[in-house]
Design a protein around this nucleic acid. Structure first.
Lengths: 339, 339
DNA sequence: TTGAAAGCGCTAACAC
DNA sequence: GTGTTAGCGCTTTCAA
């Protein structure tokens, strides 16, 4: 295995200077089409591919942005990365996708990696380490934009879902159909302090109070973002808050797990127990699931955010946007009028 | 916005040569712990972060591998990337995740990008452009390993699921419970020629014939890998092959869509129509879904493949492995004995 | 233990 | 059009 071909090998083989080869690869107008074709053919023959590192080092540009999400296995986040990738590619940028797995140290490590890799900008679904992460990005002079949700203390730019509105819309629907004892299923013990969960809990309780329900901490349960988390949470809810007549879950997978256990406990979903999940995966629409959800416009979110970020990179201005997109209620059979 | 700090700025501020700074960052033993701490502190103050491009250019190493999947939104593939990421990180490598969205041009483009970025190796779930992609990788001298499924014509190294076995196990189960008219739901028109689907169709028909069922093209339907694809396919199956008493779907989401429509058509899932999905997402276990599946050990697959690839990189040998992992039947209520 | 010097592969300024 | 030259920020000899 000999060394990889460089621009000089191509130049030698083509009988030109290596500058000419460089210009040919940049599709510079000074090189004639014919010559360009010759050079590219020889390059292909030699298996030459321009070294990105050298190019970036010299030009100071990588044409790459980073996208950080909390959980790539959750289709919600995967769709965010896909929308960002498509938007970026359309404008000639590449995307590097990184997954924090909801782990604090992973998040900061991935941010550091992106800075080392000299991404030109970052789109981030920040977790709990938002302060440290945004400090790193600022220190590293990397323009960034928060996506999805942001904590109240966050002062940077963002394109986010209106998280309190999600809880408010859900609770208003539950009240409207006659529920008086709703429970909120939040993140697990470890992640419940995440800003999104805090905001949901707060808006959940406040909206209940506005409608005359004396809501308090008893109405809030830690759960998690998986089916199993919902199963376990429902058992606890049933034991500790037997008068429950509605569930709002921070996530639809969790809601599905809770529905399963509730049925096993003899509750009829819809009439005995209304259930709403936040986010709106394809499977929620399955007749067998038919889960009422709060749909958040996450693909639009990612696309808008990507374009704003790229605009800023190209104008060399700092991102300065505070945009909040509204969620939408999708009513299905898991919430029917009380009997 | 002044320029980013370089190693020279740090050296100047610390009153040492830039070689010393470099050594300090490499945790070279020649630098005393105390000096190292001083230098790192000054670097932090200046917001210095080593330039990956320069480092890679000089050292010739990126410590990065690429992972290519067909559809990051499908949790199956997302789990593959996660397992690979974890395995790579444990050994001090980074991973770049790329999503082809099942688009041929995207796959080759992403491969090219990875070569430009000088990833040290690639783990790839190849789509239809496997020939072109593997040629690119070989030409670019990037060691690679195919993951998940490979076409019969493929001659390179792989760690794959035993795709024919998945169909065989499923069909044998259907025969055992008394089905005589099973139908296979394949990929959509555009992707049905993918090697995995071809292999599944072939093994499906062969196994049926072994068990005395006169199976032919009428037993095969194009569908797709989404819920909606399953819904549409079931309508066609019902119209064109009314005697159907079992479905094997290439994907569990598709199976769920088909089950929904089958129920609407008055078929009782389990007894009138047995349904099996290939892959085993969490939701298949939900009581409301309870889909019998063929579980493929994809996380193990990704982990094994990553370690083999990294071993090869470190030994500077070419990957030379042909490993096939066995699937497992998970029986749930969508397949009960015929009545 | 530290520093000087060379050079990784490329782009960009400028001269021809 | 094409070539020469300098240098991006770093690692790696090698000498002190």
């Amino acid at each position: 295995m000999t060394a990889r071909a460089t621009i000089k090998d191509v130049a030698k083989a083509a009988g030109v200077s290596f500058t000419t080869v460089s210009l040919a690869f940049q599709e510079d107008s000074r090189i004639s089409a014919k010559r360009r074709r010759q050079i590219l053919a020889i390059a292909r023959e030699l298996g030459y591919s321009p070294n990105q590192q050298a190019r970036a080092l010299r030009s100071g540009r990588t044409r790459t942005i980073g996208v950080l999400v909390n959980d790539i296995v959750n289709p919600f986040y995967a769709l965010v990365t896909r929308a960002a990738q498509n938007a970026a590619n359309r404008r000639g940028y590449e995307v590097v996708i990184t997954d924090t797995q909801f782990v604090r140290e992973r998040e900061t490590q991935e941010i550091r990696n992106m800075i080392h890799a000299r991404v030109e900008g970052v789109l981030a679904c920040f977790g709990e380490s938002v302060e440290e992460s945004s400090k790193l990005l600022e220190h590293g002079r990397v323009p960034y934009l928060a996506l999805d949700t942001v904590p109240q203390t966050y002062r940077g730019p963002y394109v986010a879902n209106d998280v309190p509105a999600a809880a408010r819309i859900a609770v208003e629907h539950l009240i409207r159909i006659g529920c008086r004892h709703p429970v909120f299923l939040s993140g697990d013990e470890g992640s419940r302090s995440f800003s999104a969960f805090v905001a949901l809990e707060k808006a959940f309780l406040e909206t209940l109070r506005v409608h005359g329900v004396d809501a308090n901490q008893r109405h809030l349960f830690s759960a998690g973002l998986t089916i199993d988390a919902g199963r376990n949470a429902m058992r606890r809810v049933h034991a500790e808050f037997p008068e429950v007549d509605a569930l709002l879950s921070a996530n639809s997978l969790c809601a599905m797990g809770a529905m399963e256990v509730a049925s096993q406990l003899g509750l009829c979903i819809g009439s005995d127990l209304a259930v709403i999940g936040i986010d709106d995966l394809d499977i929620c629409s399955l007749e067998r699931i038919s889960l009422t959800t709060i749909r958040q416009p996450f693909e639009q979110l990612a696309e808008v955010a990507t374009n704003i970020l790229l605009d800023c990179l190209e104008r060399k201005t700092d991102p300065d946007v505070r945009l909040v997109l509204q969620p939408e209620l999708i009513v299905r059979s898991s919430t029917t009028r009380r009997r």
